[in-house]
Design a protein around this nucleic acid. Structure first.
Length: 277
DNA sequence: AGAATGACCTGCTGGC
DNA sequence: TGCCAGCAGGTCATTC
């Protein structure tokens, strides 16, 4: 469910109420993707100083260390100021002095991981190889361009890998490539200057608009406050195979890349040749 | 070394 | 109605 916009929307929805709270108890349910990395009593008593985001990870800054939360494919967080009953697939619960944070994750690809610091393992191992933050000043065009030059893989795959730029998942990769009029199977190192420029802007624009729309709710995403996203209504290609392109009315196509679905307009995003301006 | 594949899990949908 | 194959927003380890 969650790409960068959904994670950021989630962060904003509970960061304020949980910041300054003290952890009262922590409880694990069924095993998630990785072990917590500490006993739950290590967490008890620690103050939560803030919630940041790095790529698709949420980083809770504690007195002694950090708590990383990843939503995987199907995870979502709920923050309840007044305690509610636990639900099916709630696999992590953090009771604090201002409310209870719960991770609900049917597929359990998500994770909650404690680390003594961000620079130490396991945080370093998880965050260390991540690419540039697309919505921060660090997302420089020149660096993006030189990174793309270093890979002959399909551009869609390079975006998904997150080594160059983070947060662009399966939905927004298709959307950004459509906006930039680039075929998803085009080799990254074969893109022209103008294409790279358009893609750089498109990534920023697509993610920013998705955040402002509250993210995408395809199945069941909602913020920690329970609010659903609306970006799926703005999607130009994702999930629209067989429907007309909003620009040229050609039929949107779906292909498989690395066992994931990719959606694109064959006319607006030609594989080779000069692109329309 | 980079690129492609398999694996992890559960739930839902569509076709027979 | 019931069953089964296929698909789902991520990412790591393994293989080529």
């Amino acid at each position: 469910m969650p790409e960068l916009p959904e994670v950021e929307v989630t962060r904003r929805s509970f960061s304020q109420p949980i910041t300054g709270a003290r952890i009262v108890s922590a409880q694990l349910g069924k095993p998630l993707r990785w072990p917590l990395g500490c006993t739950t009593d290590i967490l008890v008593g620690q103050l939560i100083h803030g919630v940041r985001r790095r790529g698709k990870y949420l980083v809770l800054q504690l007195d002694r260390g950090v708590l990383l939360i990843h939503l995987g494919m199907s995870g979502s967080l709920r923050f309840e100021s007044t305690p509610q009953a636990a639900r099916v697939h709630d696999h992590f619960e953090l009771k604090t002095t201002t409310g209870t944070l719960r991770l609900n994750d049917p597929r359990r690809f998500g994770a909650v991981v404690y680390s003594m610091s961000e620079a130490a393992d396991p945080a370093q191992k998880l965050l260390g190889a991540l690419g540039m933050e697309p919505l921060e000043g660090e997302f420089h065009l020149a660096e993006f361009r030189s990174g793309l030059k270093r890979s002959s893989a399909a551009i869609k795959q390079v975006l998904l890998a997150g080594r160059l730029v983070v947060g662009v998942g399966n939905i927004y990769a298709s959307e950004a490539l459509f906006a930039a009029r680039i075929h998803p199977a085009a080799p990254a190192d074969g893109l022209g200057v103008q294409q790279v420029k358009r893609l750089h802007l498109a990534i920023i624009d697509v993610l920013d608009r998705a955040i402002r729309s509250g993210g995408s709710t395809l199945r069941n995403f909602s913020s920690a406050a329970g609010v659903h996203g609306r970006y799926q209504n703005l999607a130009q290609v994702y999930g629209r195979a067989g429907e007309p392109c909003t620009v040229c009315e050609a039929t949107i196509q779906m292909i498989r890349q690395g066992q994931r679905s990719t959606f694109f307009c064959p006319k607006c995003q030609p594989l080779r040749g000069v692109l329309p301006r």
